[in-house]
Design a protein around this nucleic acid. Structure first.
Length: 195
DNA sequence: GACCAGATTGTCT
DNA sequence: GACAATCTGGTCA
């Protein structure tokens, strides 16, 4: 497909989770399924760092669940949480380093009617305003785990870079690492999970 | 083999 | 604003 040419190169992900999280804002996440194409602009992300980060799934070492984070950058890490929802991460840094960026919110673009059908809600701002919501809206399931984000059905493409104002904030409720700004979002977006 | 905790969301007050 | 719902994976015995 032509998407391979359009999508972000793998070296985009070969940097720190903080750099990648910041640069992912304004990019376009596209998922092609047999039902149709859904896409949205990334408006909120969160970084998960290697072993210094207690909140990271990989903080205690490599497991069957988080092995993807130890793999090559530019791949997707999808996990099931709280019995009902999935969360989508983009693996970054380098192979052997468990770093990833959580995609927290999207601004819907293509396939909005399909998202509304999947989510069973009408309001566009409610379609992707959260990690679990956007996965449901884009139809991201366990099958999308460990996919190559530079090619294939699930890709991230460049968007309106430089035209957005980025806000960095510490994550809430986590003491260790609170001195670092690990949550990023686009100022003024109505589609983020938190104001 | 059993128990515990979790990167959330939806619904009720 | 607060709390329950619901399941998978990891840790411990």
């Amino acid at each position: 497909m032509a998407e391979g040419k359009m999508s972000l190169p793998s070296h985009f992900y070969g940097r720190s989770a903080i750099e990648v999280a910041r640069d992912l804002l304004g990019k376009i996440l596209v998922h092609q399924t047999k039902e149709g194409v859904t896409s949205g602009k990334i408006v909120e992300t969160e970084s998960y760092l290697p072993f210094n980060d207690p909140a990271c799934h990989a903080a205690r070492g490599k497991t069957k669940r988080n092995y993807v984070m130890f793999g090559k950058p530019g791949r997707s890490y999808v996990y099931f949480i709280y019995g009902n929802y999935y969360c989508l991460n983009a693996v970054c840094e380098k192979e052997g380093t468990p770093a990833a960026v959580l995609i927290r919110a999207l601004e819907p673009q293509e396939g909005i009617s399909l998202m509304q059908k999947r989510r069973k809600v009408k309001e566009i701002k409610n379609l992707c305003s959260g990690p679990g919501k956007l996965c449901q809206a884009l139809g991201i399931k366990r099958e999308e785990n460990d996919q190559d984000l530079t090619k294939g059905n699930l890709v991230i493409k460049p968007g309106e870079e430089g035209r957005v104002k980025i806000i960095a904030r510490p994550r809430i409720g986590i003491e260790a690492g609170s001195d670092k700004l690990l949550r990023f979002y686009i100022e003024g977006s109505a589609f983020i999970s938190k104001p």
